[in-house]
Amino acid sequence: MMWINLAGFGLILLIVWWFWMYKSPNVAMQDGAIEIVVKDGVYQPSTIKIAANKDTAITFTRLDASSCSETLLIPDLEINATLPLNKKVSVSIPASLPGRYPFHCQMKMYLGELIVE
């Protein structure tokens, strides 16, 4: 029984580490055409690094029929956009200060992060 309990607590630690403590490895700075595909429950890629103080456009393509994924929100930049199915939508990111700007769907089930450096 002790081993089962230890395994259970190990699993809890694993959950905490995997979902909260894990830091994503360095993502390469993107310039030129940046494209994010919304597919199978996630943004692909979900982390994008862009240059600070420079206007950037990110093209979103939603291939996921789930209605949750229809809305894209970047609350810290006051951006919201509707992503029609199977279409490319270009979202303008205004020149921003360095920082991390999460983006997500209306229900926060699709999660991503914009790193401005």
């Binding site: 006051e78 956009a81 029609p84 279409k87 939508v89 270009s90 303008s92």
Partner: peptide
């Protein structure tokens, strides 16, 4: 977008 809250959508 006039401000950054809209996007240009390209349609079929």
């Amino acid at each position: 977008p006039k401000d950054t809250t809209t996007s240009s959508s390209e349609n079929t």
